[in-house]
Write a protein that binds this DNA or RNA. Structure first.
Lengths: 354, 354
DNA sequence: AAAGTTAGAGCCCTTTGGTGA
DNA sequence: CTCACCAAAGGGCTCTAACTT
């Protein structure tokens, strides 16, 4: 009566159902000690005789044993996970970065946990704190950093510092603190080249659709573009503010159009997604993209080449960027590999005939 | 000499640097027992006197304590993670699903670990096995299932069964086994309606670009479309095979065009991404999308409305689908909420004037 | 006697001495 | 002396049972 409804050859361990077999179960089944079973199954330098190894492996297979990662983590004092924070995983920008991170993690047999900040600094701080509890080997922060930290930003910073203090490795994008490793995308240079090229195409007046002032990526891209565009004789007439989302491009552009946009103007969206939103607004206003109003963006996300006219942009090797960020979390001595940006001129900026 | 370079008020615990503070440290600092500290910090029914609670909380704050999730997991026997398997996180289809899953997980304070199958059954099996080790509360499999399992598929199935056997909850998409919960997208009905609508618009000849035979989602969409389209007097002339990726759409369409495509033909891509690839090929061949060759897809990923002409498709609430999948992993009694699909006719299928 | 504390066993695994062949 | 095994301690936490006031 102590073993209700148990089939005849049931194991008498406590996990008849409901719990996965443990190393203990395997060891007992194989008739060896825990230590030996551990060595066979969960990797160790020390040798185990072939006959024992076989017995253990068979027992494990029979029982469907899988090492309990949490237990391993507590015992080893390190857990095989990389934490990735992104603003929005459905955004292709972050999707591509995540793909790169995942690729790297897979290579190293690490697991990646993903969390979404929704671009909310308070949320971000909360998440970093929660993630700290996982004791991940590395933490990659791919949400947008701002220059002058809000209170919540410094909450995040504090949590990150705390995490780093106890051996965790933080990787951020763009200029990080001296402490943290960071993957640098040369937004400024890429944007400058873009500005130069656009000026060379004959554009002289531009409208920029940027994120809020202080958002580093946006600031850098804007400054770079301005430098390049002005060096070629162009000028940015208006800077509209929003964020990196498509809807932001739609709204800013709609507003700009309402105020009036002269033909031959170039619109520069701080991200392709924004630029594509702007294109949509332009079209909805009955204007033409290209000869009438030209548009360019930044990132070269896949859909940039699928819209019509195809979007002029700066190619950022996002997946590679993600991969680099991953390497930065695990490599003892890491140096960022070159991440070349490349201006890609397409039909959305046909140029102005002289 | 026993405490090198230690600041004066250093704590004497073993973790002067390198290891995060433990509950033990907090308890000592607060002058209470482990049990009390645990109750205060890591949630418990039992009451703790206010004065003790304060002391503990302050000590925790001072030390920057965060509970070690792995240790909690081993002690509690359950770990707060949901595992998500997707074919490709950079694909907007999976990106949106992941966003929905992440939203749900966040609501419940769970962590999402993500893994990429790359649509490789062998990889998938390997990953499921690795993920099993995490003892996640739920496992969401969002990669494409096939009808007649390959060997590797049954490897996956075996791992899933093993996982489920010990209390894990598996959620798949599309018709799952009787055992597993599954989130059903009514591909057939959606595609049928699409087919009907396309026939009503005057289309009579269609080319379908599908994934390999046996890939359930593709099969269902194709069958549904065929039924609807034929019921309206149309017929599918050619079924080209590839996968769900953009490149597949390009290749299939290029091949189709080489063989010849008469004006007025409708191309149905089994996913928007494929349809967009086909659009690209059509354009590259110097043909026109719309009046000449019409195109429709499935999913309504964001870029579908950004391409020109905008893509006719079937709207799938992907983020909601992901959310549902998440609920299915955690709710004791779960019933799938309705996931209405909606045919969205856009400019890529202007119809054939009679 | 109620309320709240504490000691200590237990979770699953790793790893280090020891020990017998 | 190797070689290859085992026992046992330890890792950070939870939770029950016993104890204090």
């Amino acid at each position: 009566m102590s073993q209700p409804e148990s089939p005849s050859r049931v194991r008498q361990s406590r996990h008849a159902r409901g719990a996965a077999p443990t190393l203990h179960d395997v060891a007992r089944e194989a008739g060896v000690s825990l230590a030996t079973a551990s060595r066979v199954l969960n990797g160790s330098e020390r040798k185990v005789a072939e006959s024992f190894r076989e017995r253990v492996e068979q027992a494990a297979a029979e029982l469907g044993y899988t090492a309990n990662v949490s237990a391993q983590a507590t015992a080893r004092g390190t857990s095989p996970v990389i934490a990735l924070l992104v603003a929005d995983i459905a955004d292709p920008y972050f999707g591509l970065i995540a793909a790169g991170v995942a690729r790297g993690a897979d290579e190293q047999g690490l697991v990646v946990t993903i969390a979404i900040t929704e671009r909310d600094p308070a949320r971000e701080a909360r998440i970093v704190r929660a993630l700290r509890g996982q004791r991940p080997q590395g933490l990659i922060l791919a949400a947008s950093r701002t220059k002058e930290p809000t209170d919540s930003d410094s909450d995040t910073a504090r949590e990150l510092a705390e995490y780093a203090r106890f051996g965790g490795r933080v990787v951020t994008f763009g200029a990080g603190s001296a402490e943290n490793r960071h993957v640098e995308i040369d937004n400024r240079a890429g944007a400058e080249e873009l500005g130069r090229r656009m000026a060379a195409l004959g554009y002289r007046a531009a409208i920029a659709i940027a994120a809020a002032e202080g958002v580093l990526t946006s600031d850098e891209r804007l400054a770079g573009f301005r430098a390049g565009f002005e060096s070629g004789g162009g000028a940015i007439d208006r800077v509209l503010r929003g964020d990196f989302r498509r809807e932001s491009g739609v709204q800013a552009m709609t507003a700009a159009l309402a105020e009036g946009v002269v033909p031959g103007t170039l619109v520069f969206g701080m991200s392709d997604v924004v630029a594509i939103g702007a294109m949509s607004a332009i079209r909805d206003a009955g204007r033409e993209i290209g000869a009438d109003i030209a548009v360019c963006g930044f990132d070269d996300v896949p859909s940039s080449s699928d819209v019509t006219p195809a979007l002029t942009t700066v190619r950022v090797p996002l997946s590679e960027v993600g991969y680099q960020a991953f390497r930065a979390t695990v490599d003892a001595d890491w140096e960022q590999a070159a991440l070349p940006l490349e201006v890609t001129v397409r039909a959305s900026t046909p140029g102005i005939p002289r």
